[in-house]
């Protein structure tokens, strides 16, 4: 018997399963490789735009839609629109939902703990705020309660010791937001209260409501509104914000 014959006989006895031969239900976790990667990246970088995500994974639009369908079929992600200044479609991002977090924990990955109360978009805005202040080499505190009267989403102490309070107002009526802003501005030591809205129209409506207040109300001078889209890291240029001016 020659070497070749013996080798062929030996190779026939090998029991092996190639990774491409695994059935879908036998594949780890039942998710495709792309979907798993996308989920890991989305959970580690909350608020990442779909454009950046697709670029990282080298996906084109249709493949991205397939990944979204696959993940949303397991109720692992939910799509959100991010605020944007100017024209153009609002960038989209994914929120990792509870089944997604459970799946990630089965991989040994645990999403970072949130440092702010509220929903997903509220947290993404807080991350943008954090990045903005870090880039300016200034400090910001989150969930900071001023003299036990008002808790700001973000608070920054100015050079003169006075405080800048920042509120991320994604929900609630204009009247409610105005009431909260006035309550914050009335706290002693607060120099300015900035209310961030996700749309331009909300900013305008808020400014109109603010102007209607009687002139005697001194707190109203401390309040400013701004568009949260101006904080976005994907902006091509830097916008003016009423924080330090």
């Amino acid at each position: 018997m020659s070497v070749e014959v013996r080798t062929t006989a030996f190779l026939k006895t090998i029991k092996a399963i190639h990774v491409s031969e695994l059935k879908k239900e036998e594949k780890p976790e039942g998710l495709s490789e792309r979907a798993r990667k996308a989920l890991i990246i989305t959970s580690s970088e909350p608020g990442i735009t779909l454009g950046s995500l697709y670029k990282r994974l080298s996906l084109h639009g249709e493949q991205g839609t397939q990944v979204f369908k696959e993940l949303s079929a397991h109720a692992m992600v939910k799509q959100h629109s991010l605020p944007r200044v100017g024209k153009g479609n609002a960038p989209k991002t994914w929120e990792v939902l509870k089944p997604g977090i459970e799946f990630l924990s089965s991989l040994g990955l645990r999403p970072e703990k949130k440092f702010l109360k509220g929903g997903f978009l509220h947290y993404v805005m807080a991350l943008w705020l954090k990045d903005f202040f870090e880039n300016k080499k200034r400090s910001i505190k989150f969930e900071f309660t001023m003299l036990g009267k008002k808790t700001f989403d973000g608070a920054h102490q100015l050079e003169n010791g006075e405080w800048l309070g920042i509120e991320i107002a994604l929900s609630g009526t204009i009247d409610h937001n105005l009431k909260e802003a006035l309550r914050g501005a009335s706290v002693s030591g607060v120099k300015r209260v900035c209310m961030g809205f996700n749309t331009e129209s909300k900013c305008k409506k808020f400014d109109q409501a603010l102007n209607k207040l009687p002139a005697e109300n001194r707190s109203k001078e401390k309040i400013r509104s701004f568009h949260l889209g101006k904080l976005a890291p994907f902006n091509e240029r830097e916008y003016e914000l009423p924080f330090f001016s």
């Binding site: 695994l22 780890p28 976790e29 890991i40 089965s106 990955l109």
Partner: peptide, 25 residues
């Protein structure tokens, strides 16, 4: 640490994708 069918092990391609998707933020 991943759950997988008994008797099977991670593949080389899975390891590559695991390294590539390591959180860098």
């Amino acid at each position: 640490q991943r759950k997988r069918p008994k008797g099977t092990w991670p593949s080389w391609s899975e390891w590559i994708s695991e390294i590539e998707s390591f959180p860098t933020k």
